[in-house]
Every structure is written in structure tokens, then in C-alpha cells.
Design a protein around this nucleic acid. Structure first.
Length: 220
DNA sequence: ATCCCGAGGG
DNA sequence: CCCTCTGGAT
């Protein structure tokens, strides 16, 4: 073991950070319930500013009522809104889901596109959502998911300087082996939920505290 | 920068 | 009350 500390370069700390997070969170994975790429795409749109737990509460009934993209496409908008209301932003989310469903059903033969450029054309789908679908449903590492947890943790860890999610993603890509792109986000998200929480981070229990410039245990 | 939006925690 | 939760469009 070398003498890594909280102020070692990001590229040197990152492999050790990933190694320890894998040990701490061997169960890290996408927590959104889904059976198909389509269901994952819908669940991911619903997950904006909403816990995955709450998304999982509405999706079983949602996918029973609307089993296919075509069913969503031809539905009454208000019925979709009602089914997803508790996830917040329900009017925008219902509109996006229905518009995406119409495109998927009638332009892509019911299949979710498996490439970044096509996904990004869908209304309500930007890099975060596209990266989740590509990584989890298709096992394609085209980029790195940067959500609120990933942003908070990599900022606290001093792994990136940028504040804009797109720039953060580019900085992460530059220092992360591609084979870790998909796992990294899941590991950070699990760690963010359980330990490095937004309000009251539990630095004492954190497996990364000696590598973190923001740890309350380290001198600044 | 602001809006969309509901639910739960502190 | 205020903050946060796997954001995206205007």
C-alpha cells in the first residue's frame, strides 16, 4: 500500500475509493424495479427528484394498467398523471412518458433505442436518464451517471472541480477506467444514501474518511 | 436562473 | 418550517 491521503491526486485516490466502495456496498445496483428496457426508461423518468422507493411504489400498478409503450401512447393523459402523482412533477413526467411512448411505439417498433444520440432526442431524456438506461438495461458504458448523489459525493471527495453535471461527467470519465463507469455511479449512490448523506454525513462510519478532504475527521 | 411538484425527515 | 429525493426544459 502506498501512502495515499485526502490530498493525493484524484486519479490516484479513485481506484482505492472504488475498491473500498465495492467492499462496503457489494449489493450496489440499480434499485428501480423493471423487467424491460422500456420499464426502466419509464422508471428513470419518474425518478427525477424522487426516491426510487417511491417510484417502485407506483410502477407495478402503472405497468399493469399500461403494459406496453403503445398502451401509454394511446392512454388518456390524465390517467397516467393520476397513476404517477405521488412521484412529484407529475404533469411534466406524464407528458414526457407519453411522448416518449408515442415515439418508441410508432417510430421504433416498440423498442427502446440502445444508443446515446437517439435516447437524447427523446423528450424528458438527458444524459443522466440515458446513461442509466444504457448502462443498466443494455450494459453499455457510454458515459457516467451524474445525479444528485454522484454530484454531492465527488464534490465532497474533491474528485472534480466543475459544478455543472455535464462537466462533472467529463472529468470523471477522464480519470475512471471504462470498465468501472457503470458501477461507479451505483456505488456512489448507495454510499450517498447510507453514509455520505446530504444533510448529516456519517464521516465516522465512512470507509473513505482518510481519503476525503471534506471529512470532519481530517484537517483542512 | 427558474419552473415543475409530491412526500418524508429533521 | 426547510431540505432532500438517481432531472430536464425553458
Amino acid at each position: 500500500m502506498t501512502n495515499l491521503d485526502a490530498h493525493s491526486p484524484p486519479s490516484e485516490r479513485l481506484p482505492e475509493i472504488i475498491r473500498r466502495l465495492r467492499l462496503a456496498h457489494p449489493d450496489a445496483c440499480c434499485a428501480l424495479q423493471h423487467r424491460t428496457p422500456w420499464e426502466l426508461l419509464v422508471a428513470t423518468i419518474l425518478s427525477a427528484q424522487c426516491t426510487d422507493e417511491r417510484v417502485n411504489k407506483v410502477t407495478p400498478a402503472l405497468f399493469e394498467r399500461f403494459p406496453t409503450p403503445r398502451a401509454f401512447a394511446d392512454a388518456e393523459r390524465s390517467e397516467i398523471e393520476e397513476a404517477i402523482r405521488s412521484t412529484g412533477f407529475y404533469r411534466n413526467k406524464a407528458r414526457h412518458i407519453q411522448e416518449v411512448a408515442q415515439i418508441v411505439a410508432y417510430e421504433y417498433d416498440g423498442k427502446v433505442p440502445a444508443d446515446m444520440a437517439t435516447l437524447l432526442k427523446l423528450p424528458g431524456v438527458a444524459r443522466k436518464t440515458a446513461n442509466v438506461v444504457l448502462g443498466v438495461a443494455f450494459e453499455i458504458a457510454d458515459g457516467i451517471v451524474v445525479d444528485t448523489h454522484v454530484k454531492r459525493l465527488v464534490t465532497r471527495l474533491g474528485l472534480v472541480k466543475a459544478k455543472d453535471p455535464k462537466k462533472i461527467e467529463q472529468e470523471l470519465i477522464a480519470i475512471t477506467p471504462r470498465e468501472d463507469w457503470i458501477d461507479l455511479a451505483h456505488l456512489l449512490i448507495f454510499h450517498g444514501r447510507r453514509v455520505c448523506k446530504a444533510r448529516k454525513p456519517d464521516c465516522t462510519a465512512c470507509t473513505l474518511n482518510d481519503l476525503c478532504p471534506s471529512s470532519e475527521l481530517n484537517p483542512t
